[in-house]
């Protein structure tokens, strides 16, 4: 028996909007730790890792570890039917091939339930090794989203270079080139507007903008994004989900042949 009650149901709506275009089908894993997902896109270039900790739910009952295969497009369709202020409860019985989403309006005057078919998904669970990153950039998520969108109108790839001076996002395309430098500024009034760079050595990596733009669909989940970069390692683009956990995107770099 599984029963997860999330008072801030909009979080789950936002999570699905953030990942449904990257991954078609995925297993949601439910354990005492929380509700999690790890899935790669079909070309094995990007991976999304989601964790919503059990403590973040108002009610969290998961009698035994359960893996539920869901089509994320269909799940997003169902969650779109929940109001932004609704409380969302996920329910599944042991051995059932369906999951039920229950939506309650804040005033309890409208209660809906949507039952979705589960699917069997063969997915490989990857071990993500702990890594020491050469550079960690923390910046406003809206700024990062704007940069990725702007650069993708010029080129297909972005070179992210971190030095003591700041973080540089560069692209080139048929019409020309673009460079955007964000300097460290931790003296702003609001912490969510700061750009903070921790660097042990300079790093420069090239990534496909198509994926970066897809990751920025998680912007509504957090005002801050963290980019963790090391030479020859996938970048980690992390959006923390307040009080609950995180959504992390891993993207393999482009490599000179």
């Amino acid at each position: 028996m599984l029963e997860l009650r999330l008072v801030q149901g909009s979080l789950l709506k936002k999570v699905l909007e953030a990942i449904k275009d990257l991954v078609n089908d995925a297993n949601f894993d439910c354990s005492a730790t929380g509700f999690s997902l790890q899935a790669m896109d079909s070309s094995h270039v990007a991976l999304v890792a989601l964790l919503l900790r059990s403590e973040g739910f108002e009610h969290y009952r998961c009698d035994r570890n359960l893996s539920m295969g869901m089509n994320l497009g269909n799940m997003a369709k169902m969650l779109k039917c929940a109001g932004n202020d609704d409380i969302i409860t996920l329910k599944a019985d042991d051995g059932s091939d369906t999951v039920t989403f229950m939506f309650e309006s804040p005033t309890q005057d409208k209660i809906s339930d949507f039952e979705m078919k589960l699917m069997d998904i063969d997915s490989e669970h990857l071990g993500i090794p702990e890594a020491e990153y050469h550079a960690i950039v923390r910046m406003p998520s809206s700024e990062f989203g704007r940069i990725c969108k702007d650069l993708s109108s010029i080129g297909d790839t972005v070179v992210i270079s971190v030095t003591k001076e700041g973080v540089k996002f560069s692209t080139r395309g048929d019409i020309g080139t673009a460079n955007i430098v964000c300097r460290q500024n931790n003296t702003v009034d609001k912490p969510e507007e700061a750009t903070i760079i921790e660097m042990t050595e300079p790093v420069s990596l090239t990534f496909a903008l198509r994926y970066m733009n897809s990751f920025t669909k998680a912007t509504p989940l957090s005002s801050i994004v963290t980019l963790s970069l090391s030479s020859d390692l996938p970048v980690v683009v992390e959006y923390k989900i307040a009080e609950m956990g995180y959504i992390r995107f891993y993207l393999a770099p482009k490599i000179e042949e």
Binding site: H44, H125, G127, A252, K254, E256
Partner: peptide
Amino acid sequence: PPKQGTLNKFFAGN
């Protein structure tokens, strides 16, 4: 142009 790598060589399956 640089070639797109995949994640398989970074993350071990288990």
